[in-house]
Design a binder for these strands. Structure first.
Lengths: 347, 347
DNA sequence: CTGAAAGCGCTTACAG
DNA sequence: CTGAAAGCGCTTACAG
């Protein structure tokens, strides 16, 4: 191979591989290596642009400084930002991150989790599907092997691990309560149905239901589905709106991801003359997506209420938590759920 | 370690490590391993949920089946999709992908490229910054070591490697020509200035200028900059619009990424009463972002012309090209530029 | 059909 | 202050 190895540097510097390794890993002082030996080695390494073979060092040292981020589906706004912020923050701690998509598929999630044994990763961030059956075995094996992992945003019920997320229940409860406070009563929750039902969606629904009941209002929930049209993510929201027995006074969309579809469907519906209020939980801490949503909503509907998650903070805390597990290896510390505050505003 | 190793399986099956390795790597037939030996080994591996240590196998075999995607900045629509499609396609070919952000920083790009020697990656997709000075050395070393890499979307001038991208010049030329065809003459190009000027932006500008000149029109170019406001990506587009000596008949925004900002600025400008035409190159093959853009544009401006890139196709071709390099190792095949068609439409 | 052995490029006690 | 040596968990000629 063309690459410079420790061996070559050692040969040129006229010392043993041990010394080179020590110097290049900043252990020269502890090992009391002679100053001029150090400098000679450093000079050669620099000139040859030496890059250590990470495979070899990891095989021996048992850590790769690489973290896996296991998410259902990359191109969703929330995950885009989560990944980005984790990557950026992890770098400052000397770690790299690698993304693994599970494509909302249980088998794929199981495979991804199994990689904890590949030696490639020091730990994992996991946004889990909620249906646990087939993957419980892997999770348990990970626990038993005390492989470090944390849940971000979405967790698998019944698995003991730290969870870092927004307080989806509270965010949803508060937002619904605010809306009720403006005098609205017929508040419709639009929920995506099907296999993708996850802990987050569940908590948001629960929050909405609780708020409605606490105000002696009847929860009103309609599901919509993904249809396979030209764009890979069409919905049947237009039909759902059409089939409604009455016009809702406000619509709570469970995820901002589908807002463009809802707005499109709404614009084509018979409701469009007299505007509804809209509300959604969204997640744009950083890209211009928030501007997009605001612009869209302002032009199509009158008012809207939006809840924003602090994804950067979620990333930071998740990273710190995971690194604590990796670097402490204390094992059976208590498992905690950390809720990162959200904020909401009217537009 | 808790993990099952080849050694353990070998011990339990009563055979040598060699045989286990052969069987588990589907080389049993060539090596003429006895059927029942095979089955015994397979059964144990399955029961123990054996996962090979990728570090060890890669160290020996010299390939990791991991590809690096080196991009300036993950959360941009184009890259989000590019990454996603590469990941998804690479999986079907037995490869995984790992993203490395360069954050538009030359030094960071240099570091990232240097990882070609870490042994972690079999090849790299690179969307390069254009200023090449400080990184030329690494690129040349990669060439010399015949490490497999391809440029996607953005390339470094002067480096010989395959380039896979949309034909940005042509897309821009055609779009401008179309706009001129509707009778517009004062067509303003809004270009982000500063360090981030890359090959793509350059080609789009060139295409615009060529089209204008070919129709004996004067190119009209204004730069805008990123300002550090609350949202990390504010622009000074409002001021730029305000300072214009006259109202443009059409505005060509060099990247759809900034369209929300332009629309916001436009809405606040004195032009908003009499609408301009807008046009941009965009990249949304798959998420609902295209819907978002369409909705936004329809509500704010009259007409718009949009060019869409086929990112999935770019990803596929880039992947096939890179894998050809990896698996052939032919070395000095000719370097080619592959242009993936774009399409444009009026809205 | 199967096994002993070398070696990938590092790290890290241990001996001096 | 420095070196010889074992070993991380695999793969792969080679010998039989």
């Amino acid at each position: 191979m063309a690459g410079t190895s420790l061996k070559k540097i050692a040969a040129e510097a006229g010392v043993s591989v041990t010394v080179v390794s020590l110097v290049l890993n900043n252990k020269a002082t502890e090992a009391r290596i002679a100053k001029d030996t150090q400098q000679r080695i450093l000079a050669i390494a620099k000139r040859e642009n030496y890059v250590p073979n990470r495979l070899a060092s990891a095989l021996k040292s048992k850590h790769t400084k690489i973290l896996a981020i296991v998410v259902p589906f990359t191109p969703v706004g929330f995950f885009v930002e989560l990944i980005y912020h984790i990557e950026q923050y992890a770098i400052t701690k000397g770690y790299q991150a690698m993304v693994i998509n599970t494509f909302n598929d249980e088998k794929k999630e199981q495979e991804s989790l199994s990689l904890y044994r590949s030696g490639l990763f020091d730990g994992m961030f996991i946004a889990s599907l909620n249906k646990t059956s087939s993957r419980m075995g892997v999770y348990q094996a990970m626990e038993k092997a005390s492989f470090p992992f944390v849940f971000v945003d979405r967790y698998a019920e019944g698995i003991k691990a730290d969870i870092i997320s927004s307080d989806h229940f509270k965010a949803s409860y508060d937002m619904t309560t605010k809306m009720i406070g403006t005098g609205k009563q017929n508040i419709l929750l639009l929920n995506r149905s099907g296999q993708a039902v996850n802990s987050t969606a569940k908590l948001r629904e629960d929050g909405y239901i609780a708020a409605m009941k606490d105000h002696t209002l009847e929860p009103w929930i309609q599901s919509f589905i993904l249809t396979s049209g030209e764009s890979e993510h069409d919905t049947n929201l237009a039909e759902v709106l059409k089939s409604l027995p009455q016009k809702p006074e406000a619509i709570f969309l469970h995820s901002g991801f589908y807002m463009p579809h809802l707005i499109k469907a709404y614009g084509e519906s018979s409701f469009r003359e007299s505007k509804s209020e809209f509300m959604t939980v969204d997640n744009f801490s950083f890209t211009q997506d928030l501007i997009v949503q605001k612009n869209l909503l302002e032009h199509v509907v009158g008012h809207f209420l939006i809840t924003v998650q602090d994804i950067r903070q979620i990333a930071k805390i998740a990273c710190d938590t995971l690194l604590a597990h990796i670097e402490d290896k204390d094992g059976s510390a208590e498992h905690k759920t950390i809720h990162v505050p959200t904020y909401s505003f009217w537009g």
